[in-house]
């Protein structure tokens, strides 16, 4: 048994941080985990994708049809990785767009978010305002933890929320534990409402 997860977003949104927290949480929960990330040029503003298999797997990459869960930190980036999904894949998606330069310079058009969501048929889609929730909590960079919370509430998710919370506390200094745990719970609450 394995659970294939694809995280997709924009550099600066904390995609790498969130996915490696989940990796540590998997270890804490006694689960095998392999994850792949790409570092390099341009840390902010470009596409960031990490892939992860929890359970019986050697490959750190998720093949087409092997993503059981997609965590989209940004609507267009969520859509871009849908070819990894299978019918019924859970898609958690932060609905706040980050418009790329290509659209600002008029070389491309940013699609309507609602249209993107509407086209995600045959999938279990959980749209949420992760960035806005984080902004309301007082720090927009905790949006990635809102997303982790959301992910944890998907029915049948293999990693227990407590392990993820423990990994969050390992990762950050005490001073920001409270805001991050709040962000986590808010995210989980949103998905529970939709599930």
């Amino acid at each position: 048994m394995k659970t294939g997860i694809v995280f997709a977003g924009v550099g600066g949104q904390g995609v790498l941080t969130a996915s490696s927290i989940l990796g540590v949480a998997s270890l804490k929960a006694g689960l095998n985990v392999v994850m792949s990330e790409v570092h390099g040029m341009a840390q902010r503003g470009g596409v960031v994708v990490t892939e992860m298999n929890i359970g019986d797997a050697h490959s750190p990459l998720v093949g087409r049809g092997e993503a059981d869960i997609i965590v989209g930190f940004e609507p267009v980036e969520a859509y871009r990785v849908l070819s990894k999904a299978h019918p019924g894949t859970h898609v958690v998606v932060n609905v706040e767009p980050i418009v790329p330069i290509s659209a600002s310079l008029g070389n491309a058009q940013y699609p309507e978010v609602q249209m993107l969501l509407d086209r995600m048929n045959n999938l279990k889609v959980y749209p949420l305002e992760a960035t806005q929730i984080a902004r309301d909590l007082g720090n927009v960079i905790t949006a990635n933890i809102v997303m982790l919370g959301a992910l944890s509430a998907i029915p049948g998710f293999p990693v227990p929320a407590d392990s993820i919370k423990a990994a969050i506390m390992d990762k950050f200094p005490k001073s920001v534990h409270e805001i991050n745990l709040k962000a986590f719970d808010k995210g989980a609450e949103q998905v529970r409402k939709l599930a």
């Binding site: 341009a42 596409v47 491309a108």
Partner: peptide, 21 residues
Amino acid sequence: ETEVYSPDEIELPPRPPVLCP
């Protein structure tokens, strides 16, 4: 065989790496 989801083709704006803000 493997069961694959085929998303509708939508033209998405490219997001190549850029200099950070």
